[in-house]
């Protein structure tokens, strides 16, 4: 953005030199306002400013840049007979519009960005910002609200809001606990306090058969889940 603005500012000076100034001292009309290469840079820069300022949802800057772009697009291509250099010529009205557009873009963008605050996230923290990506499909088994809370927990971590992140994680955990209850086909009410839920899960675990290795493995996983939840509850 800064580079683009800097370049626009320098072109602004060029136009003044080759355009207005040339006309004022009565240089022949064969001369052009700016060379072709600079013209395309100008068009590209204005288009970039429009895209960028629209992406940033600025209100005034894109309109100012569009005025300039429209004026610039009305330029007439010409080439210098002696040197063969190609360029474009602006009519006096469009040159005025273009010049004020270039001057106003700088002012508009400064004014509009002054009311903004921008944040930058370091690459190491980015996975937390896109927290669901860290969970892949494992969350599909649990209620949608838990996905939402985990997503927000990650965003809170990315922005350094530890307490808010833990708050979201606890809410996600509550939804996940409801999911466990549903998963085990338990009749327990997931709105119960955690202690009661834990008793229900404990009873369910105890009731599971263990007559073959598969059954034993499942029972062990339920037992581990019970233990994990107990630790979370204590925390």
């Amino acid at each position: 953005l800064a580079a683009s603005l800097g370049w626009i500012a320098s072109v602004h000076e060029d136009i003044k030199l080759f355009g207005i100034f040339a006309k004022e001292i009565g240089v022949s009309d064969d001369r052009f306002s700016i060379i072709e290469e600079e013209y395309y840079k100008l068009i590209g820069s204005l288009e970039y400013m429009i895209t960028l300022s629209e992406t940033l949802r600025l209100n005034v800057t894109p309109e100012v840049a569009k005025d300039g772009l429209n004026a610039a697009k009305r330029a007439i291509f010409a080439s210098d007979r002696e040197s063969g250099i190609r360029g474009v010529r602006f009519n006096i009205l469009d040159l005025g519009i273009l010049r004020s557009s270039l001057r106003d873009i700088v002012m508009a963008i400064e004014k509009e960005l002054r009311g903004r605050r921008s944040y930058s996230l370091e690459p190491a923290i980015l996975p937390y910002y896109d927290a669901l990506g860290m969970f892949s499909e494992t969350l599909d088994k649990f209620p949608a609200s838990s996905r939402e809370d985990i997503e927000h927990a990650g965003k809170c971590i990315a922005f350094g809001e530890g307490t808010a992140a833990v708050f979201h994680l606890m809410r996600a955990m509550e939804a996940i606990v409801s999911g466990i209850v549903a998963l085990g086909g338990l009749s327990a009410n997931p709105d119960k306090e955690w202690g009661k839920l834990l008793s229900d899960i404990g009873r369910h675990t105890e009731s599971l058969p263990q007559s073959n290795p598969q059954e034993k493995a499942l029972r062990n996983r339920w037992s581990a889940c019970h233990k994990n939840l107990y630790h979370v509850k204590q925390a």
Binding site: I150, I157, G160, G162, T163, A165, L169, W222, C225
Partner: peptide, 24 residues
Amino acid sequence: TYTTEEAKQVFDSTRAFVRELATL
């Protein structure tokens, strides 16, 4: 009050827990 580092630990534990649960 939790620091970001503590919140990260809770987050990572939750993730490990969920991954384990998904196998139930």
